[in-house]
Amino acid sequence: MEYNLEVLNLTKNYQDFHLENINIKLPKGQIIGLIGENGSGKTTTIKAILNLITYDKGSIKIFGKDNYNLTKEEREKIGIVLDDSFFSPILDANDINKLMKNFYHNWNEKLYFDTLKKFKIPYNKPLKEFSSGMKMKIKVLCAIAHEPKLLILDEPTNGLDPIFRYEIIELFNNFVSNKENSILMTTHITSDLEHLVNEVIFIDEGKIILDIPKVKIDNEYGIIEVLANNFSQIKKDDYIKCLKYKNEYYFLVNSKDEFQKKYPKLEIRKPTLEEMMLILVKGE
């Protein structure tokens, strides 16, 4: 299998935070979602991939080459959305086009302006007058208008309304449909990933707690809701983690068919990624 991005045993130590042995393998044509609560290490991982910070251990390969050895031409094949960083807010969409065409040989002005129109982004209005959703739209547009092969997106759906989130998910699906392009995206809005990703990586306190294909979640994982007084009937070995919420216990299981055989009277349903994240992070 060919990978557009490989992160192997990435370790970064800060005084009060440690990112430990992060492994991500992103094949061509696939989308991986990196999920975790704020401060879990998602952005640190992205920063390390983009060479914005040094790391203590591990290696990062993009298009098969160490990330710090990439040529400009190779870096031009990457599209970036960073949640907390962009151009100065006094610039407008026209200015950004003028800048970006100097930074990318492949900058596609027609695609940029056509998509601006489609996204209903004004050309001459400074970014400071944009809503957070509009700012995110132009960030996403800047990430795709040079027709990259790898998209690295840090919280790309933050601040977007449901309609645009739907549009953007369509856009990302089209992006990988050529089986050559890939996307790594972090988010804490897990609902966006439900119909988008091929693989989900849950990260908590700097460690990967679960790395799993989405299809496996759909086919094998399940959630069982049990009232507190029935809690003791489920044995510890039969579930991964459970979370108490109000008067109910939520059990996460990784083999729903087996579980159903053991407990035929209990109802199992498909977990959402949000529920999985909550139970994996907060459950016992």
Binding site: L50, L52, S88, P89, F103, I152
Partner: peptide, 17 residues
Amino acid sequence: SYDENADSDKYLLSLPI
């Protein structure tokens, strides 16, 4: 000052710059 407020360096360095 403008670059610092928008944290532009982070974005610029993630581009081929």
